[in-house]
Nucleic acid binder design. Structure first.
Lengths: 262, 262
DNA sequence: CGGCTATTTGACGAATCTCAAAGGGAGTGG
DNA sequence: CCACTCCCTTTGAGATTCGTCAAATAGCCG
């Protein structure tokens, strides 16, 4: 149940057994939430970060007049709230989207210690943050430059791609736990328009719907239509491998760094 | 001229002399660009990152149909292109906005080596990436949830706040080197509407204009109107200090880590 | 059944886009 | 110094997208 591989530190670097174990010991507590429960609220002091074990979570920012933008829909395996490590008060609210949400709670100091203890892990965390930046840039482009229907297409594709990376089945249907209200605040439109947008996209034949289950009928057509490129993230980037080699050589083969990769 | 403090690694952690020196030796080349020159193009192989020494740079993403979203306007001292370290092909285009732009070119391996060589520096870079995430989240909220005039106000404020953090003068006037076309692609509107939006905001008395010089007449009014909170980033966060203390204790006082902070 | 919430629909208004063209200003060559 | 070009800003008019308000319908759960 506490599957280590869910934490994606290993996406960008190959971890040794001892590094994986250290990650496994990170959390001090496993907390459960129900739909609509608030995991963290905008403005809360930043004492901890979270890792999502089960369920979906919305990461949102509210404007002064109360409008809420969901800036990220988190899936199992995601780290939550890491961005606010740069702040004293959390910038984002984290809210449970599914009826069951389970997160590991990691105190900030503890995270910091792990970060400092292994340069390779630190690099993995750094690249994870850069990956989130890319995703945000793509969403910003989508919201700023494309129509509501295109935004919907690109959002569905991004969820599809991220689910596919984790799950094993090919998966052309997505059970979206979001209400149309929530979907709307992902896309930056109103819930009324979200409804019409869903029906528009259905009418074109690119998707079909049955309740909240959405089937991506024509994946290629959707991708062309959305206009957002599919990103190929680099596992184990060559420049980092090279830097790691030199770093190890300089330090001499210390026990913790030189082991064969998992 | 090659002012080290321009690289903002030290924003989140206090650096020792040797760490600062290591940063100073990072770049292999200093390159000059004129307005409209392309520093990096979407799709280029990621072999290097950049640090902006002088001038302004637009970081943008193009959709498949050619629409361009400027996702970040970079000011002197910013790191450029770091997000694409997670990719094999650059996600963003970097384009000179001012008549003179000077950047330091840092090969990715070289950056990687520095990252690996000092946990404290690595933490600084990590928090820098998280800071960029926060800024992107705020922009996404602004573009998704607020009107064109509010987006303009919030963009002007964000530029103002970032300039104020670097420059010494109080600075209530900003000489924007962006054309209205470019401003529009920051805000996610058309250049015609950008023009009308500028005039709207001027008519309310919150700003005044003279050519491309914009004066923020009523800062508080602008902030209330924009609805985007002013972020207080945490220099030297306590959880990281604590983790650094423990890390040093565990390693024993090694020469490179234990010096008094500059 | 009753009470809730989510989805869907309609009519109208507001924000924004598109197309088109009219000024400005700065540089360039005659 | 003038004519010319180029790019940027400004303005106008009409089309389109999207928002607002209001209400009807559909599910869900006790």
């Amino acid at each position: 149940m506490g599957n280590l591989s869910l934490h994606r530190f290993g996406q960008f670097v190959r971890l040794t057994k001892s590094e994986s174990d250290a990650i496994g010991r990170l959390g001090i507590e496993r907390r459960r939430f129900k739909r609509h429960d608030v995991i963290r609220s905008q403005g809360d002091p930043v004492r901890e970060i979270f890792f999502l074990i089960e369920g979906w979570v919305a990461c949102s920012i509210e404007s002064a007049n109360g409008a809420r933008q969901i800036v990220k829909v988190h899936l199992p395996g995601d780290g939550l709230g890491g961005q606010s490590l740069a702040l004293a008060e959390a910038a984002e609210s984290l809210c449970a989207l599914t009826s069951v949400v389970v997160v590991d709670v990691v105190p900030a100091e503890r995270f910091g210690e792990l970060f400092l203890s292994s340069p390779k892990l630190a690099a993995g965390m750094f690249l994870g943050a850069q990956q989130e930046r890319i995703w945000l840039m793509d969403r910003l482009m989508s919201v700023g430059q494309t129509s509501a229907v295109q935004r919907l297409a690109s959002f569905l594709l991004s969820i599809h791609d991220r689910l596919s990376a984790v799950q094993e089945e090919p998966l052309d249907s997505i059970r979206l736990p979001l209400s149309q209200e929530e979907l709307a605040s992902v896309l930056g439109i109103t819930h009324v328009h979200a409804n019409r947008t869903l029906m528009d996209l259905e009418r074109t034949g690119l998707i079909s719907r049955e309740g909240r289950v959405i089937t991506l009928v024509d994946m290629e057509g959707l991708r062309d239509f959305a206009g957002v490129p599919k990103r190929q993230f680099q596992t184990d980037p060559p420049w980092l491998q090279e830097a790691l080699r030199r770093h190890r050589r300089r330090k001499g083969a210390s026990s913790e760094e030189s082991g064969p990769q998992s």
